[in-house]
Design a protein around this nucleic acid. Structure first.
Lengths: 229, 229
DNA sequence: ATATAGTGTGTATTTTTTACACTAAGTAAT
DNA sequence: ATTACTTAGTGTAAAAAATACACACTATAT
């Protein structure tokens, strides 16, 4: 980082914390940088906002370029603009988080053109991050912890059909605490946004659980109203 | 707005919704624009972020230039970046809200150099706003409604010493609903962030109410924990 | 002294949250 | 077919929190 780098006069970028859930762990997608500064460091995926893109569009594009996915739930959560956060000049960045179901049908293989490689890494064991990305990540995790308590976003991390145990598992991972099974079910069913299906889980070597689907119409009614975990 | 205006290539600005409370009403500070575009329209105060300013610093500066106040509680809440939100070019703006006690000792006379005039206008009767400022304001109000429910920020709108009735009044105005006096007191005192003073309200033509002060130390402990109204 | 206007207080009821443990169902191995 | 194993699925009692509700007190103004 001692070498001479071009100076960026003033740039506006977006950085994304892509949370993925594979049924077991919460992971985020990180890229290994191929350029100075912070060459060989892991970093959050991000890019400069294009002249004709809205902010949400830009975030979606970054996600698409990296994962090939569209239509993913994303939300901006904080702008980071310390004058010295980027060694090459003034870069103000807006952070987004996304919630992604991993490993359903096809393996989600990140395609990255602008980095050495990209990997889904479990949040319990993250490497040191470039720039102020640790701070950005921390704030992102904090954000989804709050959000999941008050709005039904946990579904975004699950396949279309899921069991109540899987759903509970997501809550436990994000909130970092154990929940009581009976109370959890009482509460989540009480919200009335789940539709019980006539279908059972398959391929498990024990009693198969009932599958549920998330009911978008009821969800729309609930949205805005405060729920609480 | 049909005249030829200089084109802004790409600008990053901050706009502020300054909420003020004068003991009776919630108001916001608006400026009347003196320049195209939107000449003579009312707008939220805002400015371009300087090259060596952090975002918070920039917001504080805008507030200071307009009101002469420092040390006011401000928080960023949303970035607006529609490519066409500004007719002269790409202007991405980060919105802040601030909470200000009005009309205590001295009248708060806004000083505005870059506008025809500035005024505190009651939120119940706002004029049409320039650009997408109505949207920015709406989202700001929504934000403080949520915030006041979960974190003790209502104090920021009140003088240092205040009565419980005044505090309740703030909650009622922001949440736009009536609250029960006894239950309100039970709850707010239960949080343990208020210190009862040996002092009474003055200058009222009825039984004077006990004054309270906000206890910063206890507040610090509570902060982060979720409270709920 | 009287009228006025807001202060300050307690309890019973309902609702919500929490804590807690066993049987049922399906699979796998023998 | 029996058994062992693993997770699914269910109810109730106790505690805590939220709500609904009304009147006596006190300072001031006339």
């Amino acid at each position: 980082m001692e070498q001479i780098l071009p100076h960026l006069d003033s740039v506006f970028s977006i950085d994304c914390v892509l949370f993925g859930f594979d049924g077991k762990e919460l992971k985020i997608l990180l890229i290994e940088r191929n350029e100075e500064p912070f060459k060989d460091w892991w970093a959050l995926p991000g890019n400069i906002v294009g002249p004709d893109e809205s902010l949400d569009q830009s975030a979606s594009r970054i996600l698409y370029e990296l994962t090939g996915l569209r239509g993913i739930f994303m939300e901006q959560y904080y702008a980071f603009g310390d004058p010295h956060r980027h060694p090459q000049g003034r870069v103000i960045t807006l952070a987004y988080y996304a919630l992604i179901r991993l490993g359903g049908d096809k393996e989600l293989r990140p395609i990255s053109t602008y980095a050495k490689r990209a990997n889904w890494l479990p949040i319990t064991d993250l490497p040191k991050l470039a720039f102020d990305h640790q701070k950005i990540y921390d704030k992102g995790l904090e954000k989804i912890k709050r959000r999941i308590k008050h709005q039904p976003i946990a579904f975004e991390l699950l396949p279309e059909k899921f069991t109540l145990t899987q759903l509970q598992h997501v809550y436990e991972l994000v909130l970092e605490k154990k929940l009581d099974k009976r109370n959890f079910r009482k509460k989540i069913i009480g919200f009335g946004v789940l539709k019980e299906l006539d279908e059972k889980q398959k391929g498990v070597s024990y009693r198969a659980a009932t599958l549920y689907r998330f009911d978008k119409r009821k969800y729309a009614k609930l949205f805005g109203k405060e729920i609480s975990f």
